[in-house]
Simulated assay, not measured.
Amino acid sequence: MGIATDIAEDWHAALAALAWQVDAGVDEVLGDAPLNRYDLPAEAPRLPVVAAQPAPARPSPPVAAAPAPEVDPVRLAQAAATAAQSLDDLREALLAFNQCELKKGARNTVFADGNPGARVLILGEAPGRDEDLEGRPFVGRAGQLLDRMFAAIGLSRRSPDARAALYITNVMPWRPPGNRDPEPGEIAMMRPFVERHIELVDPQVIVVMGNTPLIALTGNRGILRARGTWTQALNRPMLPMTHPAYLLRNPSAKREAWADLLSLKARLRG
């Protein structure tokens, strides 16, 4: 009985002490030893491991289109000229040929003038202002001098008689800006048309007037050295002469031009 009584008294005493503490505002139980909350734990808490997410796939850059194959204007000119079966076809081929920048600034395509049955084909350089406006070669001051020069040996672009006629064309069918000399690339571009033009007319003699036609048919320049000396071009006799525009600027050179005309007259008689 004594032990049971002591336990009961201790329990009631503890309960009474707890009730007193609750009334005093105690709401949690503290340990026997003080706790410093600023002390770091022995091991930092481990953060949960999150599986790495794969980066979103970047869209593939657009595939650049393959560059367009470079167009070779000389090959296009060769194909167009070769396909021409007549002078009308060749004229249409030139009208449709858009690879030469000179065409964009020209008023007209200057094709030819004279009698296509002529024995003599005169090949000039390029149209000037008057030729560009009228659409025919050699119609300005230089053209008027040319007519007088060849009339002196009995030849004319107006003659219906093939033996006394002239056929006149240029290397360049379009006027270069400011009447500048045609560039090598422009001459090369027009050479297939020039060659086909001569083949279709089939003259007995070619007369080249100035450096541009000399370059186009022989690859050489230096008309003052070449003039008056017969040579061959496209399997035909060719006579280089100075351009009438040069004669207008240098009247003293007309004597040499007259000698060239007499040489042409003698060749035609032979």
Rank of each mutant, 00 (worst) to 15 (best):
M241R: 14
P67L: 11
F193V: 09
R196H: 08
A66E: 14
P73W: 08
E199R: 12
P240H: 11
L102S: 10
A245P: 01
P48L: 12
A80K: 01
V208W: 06
V29F: 14
A57T: 15
A106K: 03
R58Q: 15
G210A: 07
V207C: 08
R175P: 04
E131C: 01
F150N: 00
A4T: 05
N170M: 11
D10F: 02
T5H: 06
E28W: 08
V194Q: 10
V71T: 13
A13I: 00
N108L: 03
R221I: 06
S252T: 03
L268C: 00
Y246L: 09
G128S: 11
W20G: 14
L214M: 05
V29L: 15
I168P: 04
S60Q: 14
L121M: 03
L217F: 12
L18C: 03
L155D: 02
W11L: 10
A118H: 05
T169C: 13
H12F: 09
N170R: 07
R267W: 11
G140H: 05
A16P: 00
V139Y: 02
R225V: 07
L121V: 07
G117T: 04
A13R: 11
Q21A: 15
A106F: 08
D130Y: 06
T109M: 15
D161G: 03
E134A: 07
V22G: 07
W230G: 07
L121Q: 03
S159M: 04
Q78D: 01
A226L: 03
Q204M: 10
R221W: 10
I122S: 03
V22T: 04
M209R: 05
G140D: 04
L47N: 12
I153D: 01
K265M: 00
P45Y: 04
R58V: 15
W11V: 07
L121P: 00
A55W: 09
F97Q: 06
L76C: 02
I187W: 11
A126N: 11
L146C: 02
D132T: 01
R180P: 05
G143H: 04
R37M: 14
V71H: 13
D27L: 08
A16G: 08
P137Y: 05
F193W: 08
G219P: 11
L94R: 08
I206A: 04
A33V: 13
E70V: 15
A8E: 04
L214I: 06
W174R: 06
P59I: 14
P61T: 13
E256S: 06
R157G: 03
A66G: 03
P41K: 05
R255W: 00
C100W: 08
V22P: 00
G114N: 12
V22M: 10
P177G: 12
